[in-house]
Design a protein around this nucleic acid. Structure first.
Lengths: 235, 235
DNA sequence: GGCCGGCATTAAGAACACGTCAAGATCATC
DNA sequence: GATGATCTTGACGTGTTCTTAATGCCGGCC
């Protein structure tokens, strides 16, 4: 079920959106100013953000920038004014689409579908296999030695971020922002605790990790195959 | 350079788009009906398609479907009519955005930038190859002789700055400011220590550097290939 | 030839980051 | 309201990384 966060300070619009989106089986949460909108983004992690630019407490462009600071979640902007310069500013700040009020509900829904469709690209290879375990991103399952491995929600999220960037180094800031939320970007403690738990559950030898590698001072890396330690592997 | 295909049957619009897009360093090709538009998509493989729905030979929706049959290239639809049902149909057929004529050129350009930005999360070529090692900026990884080279955070930052300015001289002040911070601009010692460490890890002969060159009194330079100074060195 | 400044190299202590453990707090479930 | 699982938080030992200073080298310059 797709989760949508609507940030708007006008009650009628909020109400209309909530009714229409809920009827189409979207899961809707709302906020009515910029600050609580940003907080809700971090807390709820919606799949799409519908954002009114005319908020009472802060400039909508700043909200866009705040969101773009840590996530690529699609943003559809609503705005009462037809000012072209504002459209340009919002789009260049990272918005995905821009709809001027009054808008047709059917059009907004279609643009919403388009945004969601783009954001979830064809699940190329949602299954990652290593010699010791298999991660099925779509089914949210990990199998090791033919048996399911039980992961807590936080453990799973951390593993998912790492696996989605397989082979690439993911910085601590990014991991913390994506798993715990942008306000946790300095709690590197959490990473150590959960990296250790994942290793205990997945690594054949948890004390000498082969897949969940630490890059001291920088972050972590999920190494899927292991082109290493093989003697004389040319190329 | 981003390549744009514009499919439209109205000469003035085609002309305006060509002028504006070319001025912004886009590479523009055009077609003026659906059939030749589809052919041009297959032939030119543009990065974005700007498509007018009102074409003489076929329904624009069919063009969208035809394109979506084999590629996810972003499609921005232009249309003269404000019919909401047509917007919905176009978006649901796979269009990424929908702009109604008359449109502001600045807005269209902003929407174009947004579409391109979404489609190419990797903006440039983040891999630099030399005969002796490979630097992958995106993965934050250096491979030499098929094996990973471990770099500390400071070593990596220094290398990254140099590689990002490959071939060009980077002054000591700039290096110190970018790696250690602006208040360290006189600590040239740090540079010597870390340049030496990088050379020890990357250069085939650290005492006679081939890639991390010192420019005495000025700074350092990363020399990627080596089209340099090779006086018939029969290696 | 001797002097001097900039660079390379090395080594040591200090500062920091990591992995680990365990206890308290919170949440979900019944 | 009790129970079990999960998450948060702090402390500690260990290993790595950063900083800093000392030394030697090479060039240009007087």
């Amino acid at each position: 079920m797709t989760r949508v966060l609507v940030v708007d300070d006008e009650a009628p619009i909020l109400r209309a959106l909530r009714i229409n989106l809920t009827a189409r089986e979207y899961q809707v949460t709302t906020a009515n100013d910029g600050a609580s909108g940003l907080a809700a983004m971090a807390r709820d992690r919606p799949d799409v953000l519908i954002l009114d630019l005319g908020l009472p407490d802060m400039d909508g462009i700043e909200v866009i920038k705040g969101v773009r600071g840590w996530t690529a979640t699609p943003i559809i902007v609503l705005s009462a004014w037809g000012q072209e310069s504002q459209k340009v500013a919002a789009l260049d700040a990272g918005a995905d689409d821009y709809v001027t009020k009054p808008f047709g509900m059917d059009e907004l829904l279609a643009r919403l579908r388009a945004a969601v469709r783009r954001a979830s690209p064809a699940p190329d290879e949602p299954v990652v296999v290593t010699p010791d375990f298999t991660v099925d991103l779509a089914a949210k399952r990990v199998v090791s030695d033919g048996a399911d491995v039980r992961l807590t929600p936080t453990e799973w999220q951390l593993l998912e971020v790492l696996v989605r960037h397989a082979g690439r180094l993911v910085t601590q800031r990014q991991l913390l922002a994506e798993v715990w939320g942008p306000q946790y970007q300095s709690e590197a403690n959490y990473l150590r605790v959960y990296a250790a738990q994942l290793r205990r559950k997945l690594e054949p030898d948890p004390s000498r990790p082969r897949y969940l590698l630490t890059e001291p001072g920088m972050g972590y890396r999920f190494q899927p195959g292991s082109p290493e330690s093989g003697p004389g592997r040319s190329s």
